[in-house]
Design a protein around this nucleic acid. Structure first.
Lengths: 219, 219
DNA sequence: TAATGTTTTAAACAAGTGATTGAATTTGCT
DNA sequence: AGCAAATTCAATCACTTGTTTAAAACATTA
């Protein structure tokens, strides 16, 4: 058996709690209580709390990056670099995110928490782990995104990627809390889909916008 | 007794540490050690750690919102709602952020941590405190932003504001860490200024982008 | 069945957290 | 100066964190 019953229960409980509260805020006692297992089970099966997080990280990042890789191959985007326009590239990204979310309805938030942890918090370990493991897999996609963006220098593109990531991560992180306040939980999956789609024309316009040199001298 | 020497030292140390590490990650022992005061001083002068955070919150949010209020008055934007175009509104926002940063070079990051805490973490107390205290002051600015955006429904605008906030918060949160890695700390203030200005055309295009009818039948 | 390896359990550990106390000290005022 | 209020201080409290331990229970297999 590749994965014991207890380990599976821990992963499920941790996924839900991490997605809802974040990694640091979630304690091992919460996880094990929710999972109905002993406190020591996490250390026994995953070595440490960090080990549990990394285990979950692979679980979500792998299908995500593979989905993007596969999509690019299917659509021959790697041969013809102009076959996919900006809107289509972004929609592909959104589809990849939703694909991750199909495994469980917490997956997307878990995924977001991971990036949040890797980029917002000073968690250099996890950050390097993610980049080293999935950076090369995602590079072709980034390259395509670059080609469909407005003409700009490397550092300008670098920062625009941050703007895009910020929008996605921030919005999805917030969605959880906002949905509780608005109590419009009738159809979470469809609602997330709608928000992600709202981003496409906005981010597309942003990436294609001409960088205005006027501002650099004005302030 | 407007502010004792000890309280001032605590505020300075807390500002630097909070900006660098975040609120939860920074302990009272770190702050008091850095400030060269006794551990109990925080509770004596601010009641609690949360009291210290709220005190700092006011210290930064007040000049920020007042700067925006004042700028709108000076430029007669409240009388003529079309006097300021989208780019100018966003530049005004960036100027307000930089204005806050003039008091100290940690101010902008502190400011960002505050919004991060209020929006990303489930800190309902601070969230309501901020909205209740500064929401009404910033409403005129939001209204102007709305008027200069593409025609859209309320919820669409609501989410686009999130996209913008996400870009700003995420990018500024990241800047601190990235600048350490790139060790290009030659001129922090100018570098932040450059990044903020990079956002203007991107965010401007995003807010003015037409919502794609393919995804929404309502608009 | 008996022995062996694996898993679960309750309890405790070590290290941290923010908050509180009461005595010592400093300060401000008449 | 002297007294009262304000402030500082070391010590400690009550509590939480992730982790470890060693015995108990379970599972597997020879």
């Amino acid at each position: 058996m590749a994965q014991s019953k207890t380990a599976k229960q821990i992963l499920d409980a941790a996924e839900a709690l991490f997605a809802e509260q974040g990694f640091i805020e979630t304690t091992m006692r919460q996880i094990t209580k929710e999972a109905g297992v002993n406190l020591a089970a996490i250390n026994y099966h995953f070595g440490s709390k960090q080990g549990l997080i990394q285990s979950l990280a692979e679980h979500f990042l792998k299908p995500f990056s593979e989905y993007i890789e596969q999509s690019l191959i299917e659509r021959d985007a790697l041969l013809d670099s102009s076959s996919l326009k900006m809107d289509e590239l972004l929609e592909l990204l959104m589809r990849a995110l939703l694909h991750v979310n199909q495994e469980s309805n917490h997956a997307l938030l878990m995924f977001t928490r991971l990036l949040e942890l890797a980029y917002l918090k000073s968690q250099e370990d996890l950050r390097l782990f993610i980049i080293g493991r999935y950076g090369s897999k995602l590079k072709p996609y980034i390259d395509l995104l670059r080609k469909q963006s407005a003409l700009m220098e490397d550092d300008e593109f670098f920062w625009r990627l941050h703007f895009v990531m910020g929008s996605v991560i921030f919005t999805l992180s917030n969605y959880n809390m906002l949905s509780q306040i608005e109590k419009s939980k009738f159809d979470t999956q469809a609602e997330i889909e709608r928000i992600l789609h709202r981003m496409i024309p906005v981010l597309s316009a942003g990436m294609q916008a001409r960088g205005d040199k006027l501002y650099f001298s004005r302030l």
